[in-house]
Every structure is written in structure tokens, then in C-alpha cells.
């Protein structure tokens, strides 16, 4: 398996929204490389014709009836908010698409 570069770590950090410090990039690059190197063994089975198991239980069709249940009060909903305004969560400017 290929070694994990500092750039790759930086890319992962952006995807994961972690503002890593430069020294962390190097540190994680080394550690992730070690860990990936060790766990990459799983790909030994990649070619085997085995169905994946994403869940330990073979349950299906667990659903609930379309019935309204009590919501939180807005006070409860906003109780943990770092900032609020007009009964809404106040967040910094969103650099998004319009």
C-alpha cells in the first residue's frame, strides 16, 4: 500500500474539517501510514466472493407509524447553542453557494 503523504493528510483534514497544525500533519502522516500499513491486511479478502456484512443483525423493515410525537421546546432545542438570535441558531457567515 502506498505511503500516506503530508498532502494527503492535509486533504483528509479538509474533508474532515480539522484545522491541523503543521506539526500535526507530519505526525499524523507517519502514524496513519503505520496504521494503514498494519490494517491493510484486510484487502487479502478483497477478491474473495464473500458478501459484506455492514450490520451484525439480519433485521429488515424496522419502521414507525407516521404519528406526531412531541418535539422539544425551542428553549430546549436551543439550550446548548453557542449563540442564538430570534429563536434561531446563530452561526458565522456561511461561505456557501447561493
Amino acid at each position: 500500500m502506498p505511503g500516506i503523504t503530508r498532502e494527503e493528510v492535509a486533504h483528509l483534514a479538509r474533508l474532515a474539517r480539522l484545522e491541523l497544525k503543521p506539526e500535526e500533519l507530519d505526525h499524523f502522516a507517519g502514524q496513519l501510514d503505520d496504521i494503514i500499513g498494519a490494517v491493510a491486511r484486510v484487502s487479502e479478502v478483497a477478491d474473495q466472493d464473500v458478501p459484506p456484512t455492514s450490520h451484525p443483525l439480519p433485521l429488515t423493515n424496522v419502521m414507525r407509524a407516521d404519528e406526531v410525537r412531541p418535539s422539544l421546546t425551542p428553549e430546549q432545542a436551543l439550550s446548548g447553542a453557542p449563540a442564538q438570535e430570534q429563536q434561531r441558531f446563530k452561526v458565522p457567515q456561511i461561505l456557501g453557494e447561493e
Binding site: 406526531v68 418535539s71 425551542p74 432545542a77 430570534q86
Partner: peptide
């Protein structure tokens, strides 16, 4: 046009006051 949300029992009625139709599930608590 279901009465409740896809994954929780909060109402989907239109025009409610902000954050009155939320719960731990749809707030992602």
C-alpha cells in the same frame, strides 16, 4: 406530505415558529 419527518416524530406542518418542530433526532444531538 407525511405528518411527520422521515426519521423522527416531529411535525412537518408549515408555518410554525422557528425551531418548534425539532427533537434530538432532527437536531442531530
Amino acid at each position: 406530505g407525511t405528518k411527520t419527518k422521515m426519521f423522527c416524530g416531529c411535525s412537518t406542518a408549515l408555518g410554525a415558529e422557528p425551531n418548534t418542530q425539532t427533537c434530538p433526532v432532527c437536531l442531530g444531538l
